[in-house]
Nucleic acid binder design. Structure first.
Length: 273
DNA sequence: GTATGTACCTGCGGGC
DNA sequence: TGCCCGCAGGTACATA
């Protein structure tokens, strides 16, 4: 499932390939991808003739800034992909939006489960005002994290996945971060001591940075691919996610899987406290 | 403030 | 082989 590292990988690819180019046509498939707009066809019409000034990211949201001052916001949801394809080449099933540029390949939004969405909004992107801090681009320091955790009685894992608290972390990376930090998923967030907060903060940055370097995680049963259709590399570095029954890479104890917070959670019962 | 459940959706795997 | 069912999970929202 696309989280911060996967969206950042897509952002870099889009920026390298399309920034400075002009959209000459935009075609929308079904209504769900642009469901924020009452009239999806009218919304995509606003893309035509617009030049891409930059591709940015906020949490798991991709921000395509246009020379009109508007921003096309893309969220990949569970199964969304941005893919390139030469004009006239076969399109994948579930291709919901196609952008044609003044030169180069088409940019296609493909999304079987249709949890993803695309919408057009003003430069300030008010819809994203609720998002928490950026774990890589906004170095709040472990003291900053400690302040934000103080008094919180919720469990640490769902808090790391709460986009209002910190932007970009989902089920895969929350498990990986907590294993790396040696902290149990069900610890009360405000109960973490200083060294534990430091460990969570460092792990958050190191795990996400490494995953960005390796262009994200692609699992056998999920859809994530980069623009060219290539898989990521970080799944080879997973320490707990999807590894139930396999030995912990730190202590050898079999990794456990639990159903918690409405999600599958993987953890080491011995070296996470 | 916190916890839990539901809706949205399709592909896949397990069970029969 | 074919059918049915449950599961996977990001976000938003409802309810307790």
């Amino acid at each position: 499932m696309p989280e911060l590292p996967e969206v950042e990988t897509v952002r870099r690819d889009v920026d390298a390939l399309f920034t400075g180019r002009t959209i000459v046509d935009a075609a929308v498939g079904g209504p769900r991808t642009l469901r924020r707009h009452a009239d999806p066809a009218a919304a995509v019409a606003r893309l035509r003739g617009r030049r891409l000034e930059s591709a940015g990211r906020r949490g798991k949201f991709l921000l395509l800034r246009l020379d009109s001052g508007e921003v096309a916001v893309v969220h990949l949801g569970m199964s969304g992909q941005l893919r390139v394809g030469e004009a006239g080449s076969p399109r994948q099933a579930h291709t919901h939006l196609v952008l044609t540029w003044d030169r180069g390949p088409e940019l296609r939004f493909v999304d079987p489960r249709t949890f993803g969405q695309v919408w057009l909004t003003s430069a300030a992107v008010p819809e994203l005002a609720h998002l928490g801090f950026e774990p890589l681009d906004e170095p709040i320091g472990w003291r900053g994290l400690e302040q934000r955790l103080a008094g919180r009685r919720t469990r640490i894992k769902p808090l790391l996945m709460d986009q209002r608290f910190v932007a970009g972390i989902g089920n895969i990376y929350s498990d990986e971060i907590l294993w790396s930090a040696g902290v149990a998923h069900d610890r009360e967030a405000g109960s973490l001591g200083g060294p534990e907060v430091q460990a969570v903060y460092r792990s958050m940055r190191s795990v996400l940075s490494a995953a960005v370097r390796l262009r994200g995680s692609s699992l056998a049963d999920e859809q994530y691919r980069d623009l060219a259709g290539r898989i990521g590399g970080y799944q080879l570095r997973h320490r707990v996610y999807g590894r139930d029954g396999l030995p912990c890479r730190r202590c050898g104890t079999p990794i456990l899987r639990a159903k918690a917070y409405g999600r599958s959670t993987w953890y080491c019962p011995v070296c996470q406290h």
